[in-house]
């Protein structure tokens, strides 16, 4: 009895969380011109149509670039920081940790606005650079945290052993530490990529005519597009994410790092 009601709660929660995806997927598969569920006949025409829309192609590519560059940058800075926090007696350690994790605490929309007002407008910083700055800062705390997790799995004396065999500090880092945190770094890259790719609030103020990320474009299009194209696009994005996550879980055990 208890079991049964437990599983029905579980099933209902799953339906609530995942059901809507099936509904947009179905709506996106519609052969008709209107966004409705159940769909009017089945076809892939909207999935094909969406690929033809120049605007979405451009913003999709920008989102990709942005996610790759800012996650790469955040790892480039985050790995040394995580390493220092794990291995060195860093002065003002807690203050530093707080500063680096502050992008998690400050709501992203505020960062976007602040960057617009105090970097883009007065300094003439190109919007794309501001986007990269904002996204990199936003992803940095995740990079530091995920890499820290994998560093705790590597004992310090392993590095010391390398040093006693003649390696320098940096030699030990590149030959011993890096290969052992490679999976953690890939997990961090995937999580950072997804975070940046899906990010809306920080980009909100930093995009404008001619330069926009995919989620922002989708938000804009929702207001005047009533055909199933956005549903098809949403479905494609969801499928892409699911694929990446499943692959990462298989290869890296991604959920250990979340």
């Amino acid at each position: 009895m208890m079991r049964l009601s437990g599983f029905s709660i579980l099933a209902l929660a799953m339906l609530f969380l995942l059901g809507p995806f099936f509904i947009i997927a179905a709506a996106g598969l519609s052969a008709g011109d209107l966004l409705v569920f159940p769909p009017q006949g089945l076809s892939l025409r909207w999935f094909v149509a969406i690929l033809d829309i120049e605007r979405f192609r451009v913003s999709f590519l920008l989102s990709m670039e942005l996610a790759i560059i800012s996650t790469g940058l955040s790892l480039l800075m985050g790995v040394p920081a995580a390493y220092a926090l794990a291995r060195y007696d860093v002065p003002f350690r807690e203050a530093m940790r707080t500063i680096i994790t502050s992008p998690v605490i400050v709501p992203a929309i505020i960062a976007g606005l602040a960057l617009l007002r105090y970097a883009v407008i007065p300094l003439g910083l190109p919007v794309i650079s501001a986007l990269i700055l904002g996204h990199t800062a936003l992803v940095a705390p995740y990079a530091v945290r995920v890499v820290s997790v994998s560093l705790t799995h590597l004992r310090v004396d392993v590095e010391e052993a390398a040093i006693l065999l003649g390696a320098t500090r940096s030699g030990a880092f590149f030959r011993i530490v890096l290969p052992n945190i490679k999976n953690g770094m890939m997990a961090a890259f995937i999580l950072g990529f997804i975070t940046s790719f899906n990010q809306v609030p920080v980009s909100l103020f930093l995009t404008g005519p001619g330069i926009s990320t995919l989620p922002i474009d989708m938000l804009g299009a929702m207001e005047f597009v009533y055909d199933p194209s956005i549903a098809a696009l949403s479905t494609l994005l969801a499928l892409m994410t699911i694929l990446i996550v499943l692959l990462a879980e298989r290869l890296l055990g991604l959920s250990r790092y979340v």
Partner: peptide
């Protein structure tokens, strides 16, 4: 510095390089 002392240490915890084979562990130095 430690890496120039030519002093070996067998750690209480072994401290083998987890990603390297037995051969590569031994050949490291």
């Amino acid at each position: 510095p430690a890496n120039r002392r030519e002093i070996g240490l067998v750690f209480q915890s072994y401290a083998l390089f987890p990603h390297l084979s037995v051969f590569d562990n031994v050949a490291f130095g």
